[in-house]
């Protein structure tokens, strides 16, 4: 998992709950990296899972809610760091489609070792179907990102989420514009 996820995660936790909570979840989780991350490094994804579970314990909020909130937080970071990807698309659906078709292809060029989720998309009229597939099972993060994307493009919408398997490695999102 890319270091930026960890550093942004800590940014968010510190912002919402203070650095004490950050310190606490680092101390509680037994982390091979020792809890120090750099945005350009790569770390084992079990570390974020451990940090997320301990945060949930600490602040008594369920992990999926936390993860979705993190997705929304992460969107702003992406928008700030990589505005060109957003400028390239004039609609929300266009942008969502470009994740798999374009953005992830560019990411792989820069970080060949990165493991990225797949987003298969299909547009039918005012409805976009998006199937998330990843062994990381972090579809809530994706959900947060989708929410913020729709808001970014000022597009009123309705989102339905459907787990296509029990463990949540394949999830279908249906986004209908209103």
């Amino acid at each position: 998992m890319k270091g930026i996820v960890f550093s942004e995660f800590f940014e968010m936790v510190e912002e919402k709950f203070g650095y004490e909570v950050v310190d606490s979840i680092i101390e509680k989780s037994d982390l091979p990296s020792g809890g120090s991350y750099t945005a350009i490094g790569t770390y084992h994804h079990s570390e974020i899972v451990a940090l997320l579970m301990n945060l949930s314990d600490e602040v008594k909020v369920d992990p999926q809610t936390l993860l979705k909130a993190f997705g929304e937080y992460l969107f702003d970071t992406f928008l700030k760091s990589y505005p060109q990807f957003f400028e390239a698309q004039s609609s929300a659906f266009g942008f969502l489609e470009s994740i798999d078709n374009h953005i992830h292809i560019e990411v792989r060029k820069l970080y060949p070792e990165a493991t990225l989720p797949r987003f298969e998309t299909k547009i039918e009229g005012d409805k976009l179907t998006m199937v998330y597939t990843s062994e990381r099972k972090m579809s809530a993060l994706a959900e947060g990102l989708i929410h913020k994307t729709m808001h970014h493009y000022n597009t009123p919408f309705e989102l339905k989420k459907e787990l296509l398997n029990q463990e949540g490695s394949t999830v279908k999102f249906q986004i209908t514009t209103l």
Binding site: G35, S36, T38, I40
Partner: peptide, 14 residues
């Protein structure tokens, strides 16, 4: 301590 470690790591990577 963590920040320093991260910086060093980042420097190494860079």
């Amino acid at each position: 301590l963590r920040e320093r470690k991260a910086r060093k790591e980042a420097e190494g990577i860079l």
